[in-house]
Design a protein around this nucleic acid. Structure first.
Lengths: 151, 151
DNA sequence: TCAATCAGTACCGTTCTGGTCCACAATTGG
DNA sequence: CCAATTGTGGACCAGAACGGTACTGATTGA
């Protein structure tokens, strides 16, 4: 299913949440706000801080805040922070670990595919996702039908 | 890592192989040709046959052949056949299984991302991958260094 | 100095993937 | 008409990865 780790989903939610916050927010606070277990949220935030997407402030009255506005953060960056490099196959780029390399007729040839995906993901920012993230209950029936028609 | 199942990789290899074959090929034959265990290849071919990408012929002197030329098969179709629907998150489209839907501020909003990926993958055919799949032993050192420099 | 908060690590249970095997159906060829 | 060949479908198992949790330490502010 070309799955993305669930943690990345959490990361997007947390980042959007932070984008709306005015001051720093603690990880328990964010966890409560988005309805997720606190340790998990903390783990996600740590990874995001490690990648520089959020800035952490330690000590009392500390917490997290965005390092950049939402429209300056691409989905690709979030995935990179949580899931690691964006690549579809284990056999990627110059990966020399493939034992059947001599037989494999497409040796590492997922590269164009990976590039295409990277490009697609870089073009979408969190602001785009936030904009489309109006709760369904608040959307007009016309919006809903228009959205489903496009799928 | 935004992983794709290894079976999909196998599927591409097998399909490219079939694209070069002149007659039908048996699954043991393909397995031997691409250096993969036979039962695994058989499983992949079954899935591909189920999706109509290859045509199976039962009985003695049976085997598999492509239903369409390589340039008419997109990577997206192969992924769809092996891995199922192309979607990044478990929380997709109208998926109503999300228990924290009321809290989730991006409820199902991976849709634009999924669409972008689907589009990118649909634009790449197996012929594109085959073309780029010149065995490394046959490539000039200049090509190899140029390829690695791009990473 | 103490409390609040992030940082890092280590661990466990569940789930999924990859891989194997077996019984059955279909087709060909003698 | 029979037997050999080949795909079909399902069940099954081991290993790894993921999600989630707990614990200890470091840092900051009151």
């Amino acid at each position: 299913m070309l799955r993305l780790s669930r943690l990345t989903d959490y990361a997007v939610v947390a980042l959007v949440r932070l984008g709306r916050a005015e001051a720093v927010e603690t990880s328990p606070g964010i966890a409560a706000a988005i309805g997720l277990p606190e340790p998990t949220v903390a783990k996600v935030l740590k990874a995001l801080a490690c990648s520089g997407l959020v800035v952490s402030q330690r000590g009392a009255h500390g917490g997290y805040r965005l390092s950049r506005p939402l429209h300056a953060i691409s989905v690709a960056e979030v995935i990179l922070a949580i899931d690691g490099p964006i690549a579809l196959a284990s056999c990627v780029d110059g990966a020399a670990g493939c034992e059947s390399q001599s037989l494999c007729p497409v040796a590492g040839r997922w590269d164009p595919v990976n590039d295409a995906i990277r490009e697609a993901l870089t073009g979408i920012t969190l602001a785009d996702m936030e904009e489309a993230a109006v709760p369904r209950a608040f959307r007009l029936p016309a919006e809903l039908s228009a959205a489903t028609a496009g799928e």
